[in-house]
Computed example of a mutant assay.
Amino acid sequence: MKQCNTWTAFSKFISGLDIPEAIKEQEGNKKLQVDHQFYLDLFSMLSPAFPNVDQVVVERLSLAGYLYFRTTLLLDQQFDTVSDNTNTSSIKRMMLCMAYHERSIKELTQVFESNHPFWEEFDVIKKRYLEANMLEKKLSKEQQFFTEKLFEQLAEGKSGLSIASVLALCSVNNNFDTEKYWNARCCLFIPASSFLTILMILSRI
Protein backbone atom coordinates (compact mmCIF):
# COMPACT_ATOMS: atom_id res chain seq x y z
CA MET A 1 0.00 0.00 0.00
CA LYS A 2 1.55 3.31 -1.11
CA GLN A 3 1.02 6.02 1.51
CA CYS A 4 -0.49 9.36 0.51
CA ASN A 5 1.27 12.49 1.76
CA THR A 6 -2.03 14.08 2.72
CA TRP A 7 -0.95 15.65 6.02
CA THR A 8 2.11 17.20 4.36
CA ALA A 9 -0.03 18.65 1.56
CA PHE A 10 -2.57 19.93 4.09
CA SER A 11 0.16 21.54 6.22
CA LYS A 12 1.59 23.26 3.15
CA PHE A 13 -1.87 24.57 2.25
CA ILE A 14 -2.44 25.85 5.79
CA SER A 15 0.92 27.61 5.89
CA GLY A 16 0.01 29.57 2.75
CA LEU A 17 -3.31 30.88 4.07
CA ASP A 18 -3.63 34.51 5.11
CA ILE A 19 -4.73 33.70 8.65
CA PRO A 20 -3.23 34.33 12.11
CA GLU A 21 -0.31 32.11 13.08
CA ALA A 22 -2.21 30.93 16.15
CA ILE A 23 -4.95 29.46 13.94
CA LYS A 24 -2.37 27.83 11.65
CA GLU A 25 -0.81 26.15 14.68
CA GLN A 26 -4.24 25.08 15.98
CA GLU A 27 -5.36 23.64 12.64
CA GLY A 28 -2.03 21.92 12.01
CA ASN A 29 -1.72 20.47 15.51
CA LYS A 30 0.08 17.11 15.49
CA LYS A 31 -2.60 15.66 17.76
CA LEU A 32 -5.13 16.21 14.97
CA GLN A 33 -2.86 14.25 12.65
CA VAL A 34 -3.24 11.29 15.01
CA ASP A 35 -6.95 11.84 15.67
CA HIS A 36 -7.72 12.12 11.95
CA GLN A 37 -5.58 9.18 10.84
CA PHE A 38 -8.50 7.29 9.34
CA TYR A 39 -9.45 10.13 6.99
CA LEU A 40 -5.82 10.93 6.21
CA ASP A 41 -5.18 7.29 5.24
CA LEU A 42 -8.57 6.56 3.65
CA PHE A 43 -7.43 6.82 0.02
CA SER A 44 -4.19 4.99 0.78
CA MET A 45 -6.24 2.11 2.15
CA LEU A 46 -8.68 2.11 -0.76
CA SER A 47 -6.22 2.62 -3.61
CA PRO A 48 -4.95 -1.02 -3.80
CA ALA A 49 -8.44 -1.98 -4.94
CA PHE A 50 -8.13 0.54 -7.80
CA PRO A 51 -4.72 -0.23 -9.39
CA ASN A 52 -5.60 1.63 -12.59
CA VAL A 53 -5.93 4.97 -10.81
CA ASP A 54 -2.70 6.97 -11.05
CA GLN A 55 -1.00 7.80 -7.73
CA VAL A 56 -1.01 11.52 -8.56
CA VAL A 57 -4.80 11.38 -8.84
CA VAL A 58 -5.07 9.41 -5.60
CA GLU A 59 -2.98 12.07 -3.83
CA ARG A 60 -5.18 14.85 -5.20
CA LEU A 61 -8.38 13.07 -4.19
CA SER A 62 -6.95 12.32 -0.76
CA LEU A 63 -6.23 16.00 -0.10
CA ALA A 64 -9.67 16.97 -1.41
CA GLY A 65 -11.32 14.39 0.82
CA TYR A 66 -9.43 15.45 3.93
CA LEU A 67 -10.16 19.13 3.31
CA TYR A 68 -13.84 18.28 2.89
CA PHE A 69 -13.71 16.37 6.18
CA ARG A 70 -12.21 19.42 7.90
CA THR A 71 -14.94 21.54 6.31
CA THR A 72 -17.65 19.38 7.87
CA LEU A 73 -15.96 19.62 11.28
CA LEU A 74 -16.00 23.41 11.11
CA LEU A 75 -19.62 23.42 9.96
CA ASP A 76 -20.56 21.18 12.88
CA GLN A 77 -18.90 23.64 15.25
CA GLN A 78 -20.78 26.47 13.58
CA PHE A 79 -24.11 24.66 13.98
CA ASP A 80 -23.36 24.01 17.64
CA THR A 81 -22.74 27.73 18.26
CA VAL A 82 -25.48 29.08 15.99
CA SER A 83 -26.85 31.26 18.79
CA ASP A 84 -23.59 33.24 18.79
CA ASN A 85 -22.54 33.34 15.16
CA THR A 86 -21.50 36.99 14.93
CA ASN A 87 -18.46 36.93 17.22
CA THR A 88 -14.91 37.16 15.86
CA SER A 89 -14.14 33.48 16.50
CA SER A 90 -17.21 32.37 14.59
CA ILE A 91 -16.41 34.60 11.62
CA LYS A 92 -12.82 33.31 11.45
CA ARG A 93 -14.11 29.74 11.63
CA MET A 94 -16.44 30.34 8.68
CA MET A 95 -13.65 31.98 6.64
CA LEU A 96 -11.43 28.98 7.28
CA CYS A 97 -14.31 26.67 6.41
CA MET A 98 -14.74 28.46 3.08
CA ALA A 99 -11.00 28.17 2.38
CA TYR A 100 -11.06 24.41 3.03
CA HIS A 101 -14.17 23.92 0.91
CA GLU A 102 -12.88 25.99 -2.01
CA ARG A 103 -9.56 24.13 -2.14
CA SER A 104 -11.31 20.77 -1.85
CA ILE A 105 -13.57 21.54 -4.80
CA LYS A 106 -10.63 22.94 -6.75
CA GLU A 107 -8.79 19.63 -6.34
CA LEU A 108 -11.87 17.67 -7.42
CA THR A 109 -12.37 19.81 -10.53
CA GLN A 110 -8.82 18.90 -11.57
CA VAL A 111 -10.01 15.29 -11.76
CA PHE A 112 -13.67 15.58 -12.79
CA GLU A 113 -15.07 17.98 -15.37
CA SER A 114 -18.19 19.96 -14.47
CA ASN A 115 -20.50 17.64 -16.46
CA HIS A 116 -19.01 14.42 -15.05
CA PRO A 117 -21.60 12.02 -13.48
CA PHE A 118 -19.51 12.08 -10.28
CA TRP A 119 -21.00 15.43 -9.26
CA GLU A 120 -24.61 14.28 -9.41
CA GLU A 121 -24.00 11.29 -7.14
CA PHE A 122 -21.78 13.42 -4.91
CA ASP A 123 -24.67 15.86 -4.42
CA VAL A 124 -26.89 12.97 -3.29
CA ILE A 125 -24.25 11.87 -0.76
CA LYS A 126 -23.87 15.43 0.58
CA LYS A 127 -27.63 15.77 1.02
CA ARG A 128 -27.84 12.48 2.94
CA TYR A 129 -24.91 13.51 5.11
CA LEU A 130 -26.57 16.80 6.02
CA GLU A 131 -29.90 15.09 6.72
CA ALA A 132 -28.18 12.53 8.96
CA ASN A 133 -26.31 15.27 10.78
CA MET A 134 -29.51 17.20 11.47
CA LEU A 135 -31.32 14.03 12.54
CA GLU A 136 -28.49 13.10 14.90
CA LYS A 137 -28.66 16.51 16.60
CA LYS A 138 -32.46 16.27 16.84
CA LEU A 139 -32.34 12.81 18.40
CA SER A 140 -29.64 13.91 20.81
CA LYS A 141 -31.60 16.97 21.88
CA GLU A 142 -34.88 15.09 22.31
CA GLN A 143 -33.13 11.97 23.71
CA GLN A 144 -35.16 9.69 21.47
CA PHE A 145 -34.65 5.94 21.41
CA PHE A 146 -32.55 4.69 18.49
CA THR A 147 -34.32 2.05 16.44
CA GLU A 148 -32.33 -0.23 14.13
CA LYS A 149 -33.77 1.57 11.12
CA LEU A 150 -32.73 4.96 12.49
CA PHE A 151 -29.27 3.66 13.24
CA GLU A 152 -28.86 2.38 9.66
CA GLN A 153 -30.12 5.71 8.29
CA LEU A 154 -27.63 7.62 10.41
CA ALA A 155 -24.81 5.20 9.61
CA GLU A 156 -25.28 5.60 5.87
CA GLY A 157 -25.53 9.38 6.06
CA LYS A 158 -22.61 9.85 8.44
CA SER A 159 -20.49 7.52 6.29
CA GLY A 160 -20.88 9.99 3.43
CA LEU A 161 -17.22 10.98 3.23
CA SER A 162 -16.08 7.35 3.05
CA ILE A 163 -18.72 6.57 0.44
CA ALA A 164 -17.72 9.65 -1.57
CA SER A 165 -14.10 8.46 -1.50
CA VAL A 166 -15.06 5.16 -3.12
CA LEU A 167 -17.31 7.03 -5.57
CA ALA A 168 -14.37 9.21 -6.62
CA LEU A 169 -12.02 6.28 -7.21
CA CYS A 170 -14.72 4.36 -9.09
CA SER A 171 -15.38 7.43 -11.28
CA VAL A 172 -11.81 8.14 -12.39
CA ASN A 173 -11.06 7.68 -16.12
CA ASN A 174 -14.79 7.59 -16.95
CA ASN A 175 -14.84 3.90 -16.18
CA PHE A 176 -17.41 3.68 -13.39
CA ASP A 177 -17.39 0.32 -11.64
CA THR A 178 -20.98 0.02 -10.41
CA GLU A 179 -20.57 -3.37 -8.74
CA LYS A 180 -17.47 -2.33 -6.82
CA TYR A 181 -19.11 0.93 -5.74
CA TRP A 182 -22.26 -0.66 -4.32
CA ASN A 183 -20.34 -3.44 -2.61
CA ALA A 184 -18.16 -0.82 -0.94
CA ARG A 185 -21.21 1.17 0.14
CA CYS A 186 -22.61 -1.90 1.84
CA CYS A 187 -19.49 -2.53 3.90
CA LEU A 188 -18.42 1.02 4.75
CA PHE A 189 -20.62 1.05 7.84
CA ILE A 190 -18.30 -1.33 9.67
CA PRO A 191 -15.81 0.07 12.23
CA ALA A 192 -12.58 1.60 10.92
CA SER A 193 -10.65 -1.13 12.72
CA SER A 194 -12.21 -3.64 10.35
CA PHE A 195 -11.31 -1.68 7.24
CA LEU A 196 -9.27 -4.55 5.84
CA THR A 197 -12.59 -6.35 5.33
CA ILE A 198 -13.51 -3.68 2.79
CA LEU A 199 -10.29 -4.18 0.87
CA MET A 200 -10.75 -7.96 0.85
CA ILE A 201 -14.27 -7.59 -0.57
CA LEU A 202 -13.21 -5.07 -3.19
CA SER A 203 -10.19 -7.09 -4.25
CA ARG A 204 -12.39 -10.06 -5.12
CA ILE A 205 -14.50 -8.05 -7.57
Rank of each mutant, 00 (worst) to 15 (best):
2 K>S: 11
4 C>D: 09
7 W>A: 08
9 A>Y: 03
9 A>T: 03
10 F>R: 00
13 F>I: 08
13 F>P: 04
13 F>Q: 02
19 I>A: 00
20 P>N: 05
22 A>W: 01
25 E>K: 09
30 K>M: 09
31 K>R: 11
33 Q>F: 07
34 V>D: 15
35 D>G: 12
35 D>W: 09
36 H>F: 14
36 H>E: 15
37 Q>L: 15
38 F>S: 06
38 F>K: 05
40 L>K: 01
40 L>D: 01
44 S>G: 15
44 S>T: 12
45 M>Q: 13
45 M>T: 09
45 M>A: 09
47 S>Y: 02
48 P>I: 10
49 A>Y: 00
49 A>K: 00
50 F>Y: 08
51 P>D: 13
51 P>E: 06
51 P>R: 09
51 P>W: 06
51 P>G: 12
53 V>G: 00
57 V>K: 05
59 E>Y: 13
62 S>N: 09
64 A>R: 00
64 A>L: 11
64 A>W: 02
66 Y>N: 06
67 L>R: 01
67 L>C: 05
69 F>V: 08
76 D>Y: 10
76 D>Q: 11
77 Q>P: 00
78 Q>Y: 11
78 Q>M: 13
80 D>P: 02
81 T>Y: 07
83 S>D: 03
85 N>T: 07
85 N>M: 12
86 T>S: 04
86 T>D: 05
88 T>I: 02
91 I>N: 08
92 K>E: 12
93 R>N: 04
94 M>Y: 14
96 L>A: 02
96 L>M: 10
97 C>H: 10
97 C>M: 15
98 M>C: 11
98 M>P: 00
101 H>M: 12
103 R>I: 02
104 S>K: 02
105 I>Y: 15
106 K>R: 13
106 K>W: 03
109 T>V: 15
110 Q>G: 11
111 V>E: 14
113 E>W: 05
113 E>T: 10
116 H>L: 12
117 P>F: 04
120 E>Q: 09
120 E>P: 02
122 F>M: 07
124 V>A: 08
125 I>M: 11
125 I>W: 09
126 K>F: 06
128 R>K: 03
129 Y>V: 01
129 Y>P: 01
130 L>N: 04
132 A>F: 07
135 L>K: 14
135 L>A: 10
137 K>N: 14
138 K>M: 10
141 K>Q: 09
143 Q>A: 08
143 Q>K: 10
145 F>D: 09
146 F>A: 12
146 F>K: 14
147 T>N: 07
150 L>I: 06
150 L>S: 08
154 L>N: 11
155 A>E: 14
156 E>A: 05
157 G>C: 14
163 I>K: 02
164 A>F: 03
166 V>C: 06
166 V>L: 13
173 N>E: 13
174 N>G: 15
174 N>Q: 15
174 N>A: 13
177 D>R: 01
177 D>G: 00
179 E>W: 01
183 N>F: 02
186 C>N: 10
188 L>Q: 06
192 A>E: 07
194 S>A: 08
196 L>D: 08
200 M>H: 08
201 I>T: 04
203 S>D: 13
203 S>M: 04
205 I>K: 05
